[in-house]
């Protein structure tokens, strides 16, 4: 299985669901931009499919991350050319407002860990709300509890999240 190339749709799909999330995360922290990360993610997998004959399953991960990293370097090279060209222009735009905060990878890793360590019931509601984008009413229906109870759990989740981040419980 590990020696077979990626030209079968089943294996290609398996590779996608195994590595796409990690690759997206990697790209996001390189580019600091979600849209670019998603574009490059798609390009990387299209490239993988194009070259599927040459890539065995055991090589997929390093292949994908190499493509993605090269794409990053290309973009940066291009940006540098543009930046050098109108240097004086960019320098002026240096106001920092909370809206343009850059989240560092270290900080984000703490956030991830805090969410992962939430008590199961709180975490469940948190995920349904933030990832599945369900409304409180829909969560209430799914879990067979009242809307009030959902709100309470969500509130607890956010509170324990904040505690975990600041006091490292």
């Amino acid at each position: 299985m590990n020696k077979r190339n990626l030209c079968s749709e089943t294996l290609f799909q398996k590779a996608f669901f195994e590595y796409a999330k990690d690759l997206k995360r990697f790209l996001f922290f390189k580019f600091k931009d979600m849209e670019t990360a998603e574009d490059i993610l798609q390009e990387s997998f299209l490239k993988l499919w194009k070259n599927c004959e040459k890539v065995t399953y055991s090589k997929v991960k390093s292949y994908l991350f190499t493509i993605a990293n090269n794409a990053f370097l290309d973009v940066k090279k291009h940006e540098k050319v543009v930046r050098d060209y109108n240097k004086s222009y960019v320098e002026q735009n240096k106001t920092v407002s909370p809206e343009f905060l850059i989240i560092e990878k270290e900080f984000y890793t703490k956030v991830e860990r805090a969410i992962a360590s939430l008590p199961p019931k709180q975490r469940e509601v948190f995920i349904m709300s933030k990832i599945e984008k369900l409304k409180y009413k829909e969560i209430a229906q799914k879990l067979d509890i009242s809307v009030k109870a959902v709100e309470k759990r969500m509130h607890q989740a956010l509170k324990s999240f904040k505690e975990r981040i600041d006091y490292k419980i």
Partner: peptide, 15 residues
Amino acid sequence: KKLQKSIEIWSELER
């Protein structure tokens, strides 16, 4: 604000 933004990023990266 940083925490709020991190949660937004998380929900985008984990979906």
